[in-house]
Design a protein around this nucleic acid. Structure first.
Lengths: 136, 136
DNA sequence: TTACCTGCAAAGAGTTTGCAGGTAG
DNA sequence: CTACCTGCAAACTCTTTGCAGGTAA
């Protein structure tokens, strides 16, 4: 559980002014015990329910992408039509349940070390992502 | 290199009538030595160049998704705004060059075996996909 | 002839952008 | 006061759909 002051710092360090809307976004994302997986649409829906005033999509995209850049959020590669984000920014992988479109974290220990034996000259590896598709 | 008869069989077995447009699509996809990675838009562009008559998007989507269902094409998970497909349907992984939006195959030997130690009761693993993001 | 296919254009979904008015510092 | 932020709506991109005319079998 984080408090308002933490959110204000988080925002400032992302180069964002701590406005009412952005603090509400922080509350939804970080004021919880467990990892949170979401799409922009999910987030917009939750904000709409929680607060009386609506937060516009432009603001949500703006904040989410700033947080992604600051590594406060991670974007997950799934080729559905929408982007999925994860509040767990540590190095980990995912199950994607194709029956329900839901993401489940795989702890680091749940996946054996992935060895990439090939190198591409002049390129750096930015990340290694494992996606395990499951269904009922 | 495959010939027209092969394409006609491929189409028929996908439940598609072998029309001029679809045979042209087959030529672009399969009449080549190497694996081909593409987006729908790429494919539309190539078809436009190669043939005098244009093949409509509806037909391209229709054919590509029928081929995907038949396992003649593989869809690759990258969270850009578009879908990537691969004519290499074997079990393999990818580099994704973030600087150029290009995909590169990783041969099976290039990636150590990926062990998934966690199981989800009642769910089956459909696939395990590794995406290695690289950049300049 | 019948069922399927094509091209077009419109509709949808998700995302991005421009701008006039509002707010943090 | 100034720079940044907000909401709105329009614009964009990719994808899907409806339909009238065309084609494989």
């Amino acid at each position: 559980m984080e408090n308002k002051e933490t959110f204000i710092k988080k925002l400032r360090s992302s180069g964002l002014r701590p406005t009412r809307q952005r603090i509400e976004i922080c509350r939804v994302l970080y004021d919880r015990k467990n990892t949170f997986h979401f799409t922009i649409n999910d987030l917009a829906g939750i904000l709409k329910k929680k607060s009386n005033q609506k937060v516009s999509l432009a603001t949500i995209y703006n904040t989410v992408f700033a947080f992604k850049k600051k590594n406060y959020l991670k974007e997950i590669s799934i080729n559905t039509n929408k982007s999925y984000f994860d509040t767990n920014v540590s190095n980990h992988h995912h199950f994607f349940n194709e029956s329900t479109d839901q993401l489940i974290d795989l702890k680091n220990d749940d996946v054996g070390k992935v060895k990439i034996k090939k190198k591409i000259p002049g390129k750096k590896i930015k990340s290694v992502e494992v996606l395990v598709r499951i269904s009922n």
